[in-house]
């Protein structure tokens, strides 16, 4: 019953988002250009490196292409679903507009998170899908249905981990003013998920798996498609997600308790 209700609310927000986005269709085109530029920059970066070295941390050219594609897919799915909504939280807090969200008889986090979906960005998914297909052809990869299942699970874990870290960070807005640069900086930090895991060893690998779990987002799903072991990666990803999820939930709940509206 509860799930049905939330599904209904999600559908309503999707309709509202479609309506809003159709007014500002130009913005969607600009974002598409941005994704193309980002993807282009990543390709230029690694292609230039491959002019000088045969592999990066043990990763060959085609494998890095696949990683770039999976990373962009994960980032795009995050931005299309909850990224826009969660990015609003600092402003809602500072402007006292969170009151309007808190008065609704549903989870305020869910309500804010799905309030800025970007359905018109769906065509941007074609770019990473095309690059991924090309990379898999070049690598002669033919993943089994089980591998695709692992891939889906790890992709979901990665996107959820990104959500949890971002929520922990934006919850700081309950106590700090002027952290408006933080979401943008976090976004820059998450671009690191496109770096091959082979460059991280020892403490750095632990840091980027659990501390700042950027490896969980794209490297783990890519590794499964490359035929590398899935279970240890799923276990590590779930652990990172559990830790950050608990921290995010605590920060959000504690912040809400200390929230004092200042808007009028």
């Amino acid at each position: 019953m509860q799930i049905k209700r939330y599904l209904h609310i999600w559908l309503q927000w999707l309709k509202i988002s479609l309506g809003r986005e159709s007014i500002f269709r130009g913005n969607a085109w600009v974002r598409l250009l941005g994704q193309a530029l980002w993807l282009g920059t990543a390709l230029v970066f690694f292609e230039t490196l491959f002019l000088h070295v045969p592999s990066i941390g043990g990763w060959k050219r085609g494998q890095v292409w696949l990683l770039i594609a999976v990373n962009e897919l994960a980032q795009q799915l995050y931005r299309m679903s909850v990224g826009g909504g969660i990015g609003r939280i600092p402003n809602l807090i500072w402007q006292g507009k969170l009151d309007g969200v808190l008065t609704k008889p549903i989870s305020p986090l869910f309500n804010v998170a799905v309030s800025r979906m970007r359905p018109y960005d769906a065509p941007a998914l074609l770019l990473p899908l095309a690059l991924g297909w090309y990379a898999m052809r070049a690598l002669n990869l033919h993943p089994t249905p089980a591998q695709w299942l692992w891939f889906g699970m790890l992709l979901a874990v990665g996107i959820a981990a990104r959500f949890a870290i971002t929520l922990s960070a934006v919850s700081l807005a309950f106590w700090l003013t002027r952290i408006y640069a933080l979401p943008a900086l976090l976004s820059e930090m998450f671009n690191l998920s496109g770096y091959p895991e082979g460059i991280f060893r020892g403490a750095a690998r632990a840091l980027f798996t659990f501390g700042v779990p950027v490896l969980v987002i794209a490297n783990f799903p890519t590794a499964v498609l490359l035929g590398w072991p899935a279970l240890p990666r799923l276990a590590a990803g779930a652990l990172a997600l559990g830790g950050w999820g608990a921290l995010a939930a605590a920060a959000w709940r504690y912040g809400l308790r200390h929230y004092t509206a200042v808007g009028g």
Binding site: L49, H52, V53, I56, G57, A169, L172, L176, T177, R178, I179, A181, L182, L185, L186, E188, M189, N191, L192, Y195, G198, I199, F200, A204, L207, F208, V212, V214
Partner: peptide, 27 residues
């Protein structure tokens, strides 16, 4: 007067630098 904001911004901004240095260390 927003020192903490600056420190936070730079610390978060420093994380990509760690990865960048690790990457170049391998290259």
């Amino acid at each position: 007067s927003y020192r903490l904001n600056h420190i936070l911004s730079f610390v978060v901004g420093a994380v990509p630098l760690i990865a960048m240095l690790l990457l170049w260390d391998k290259v």
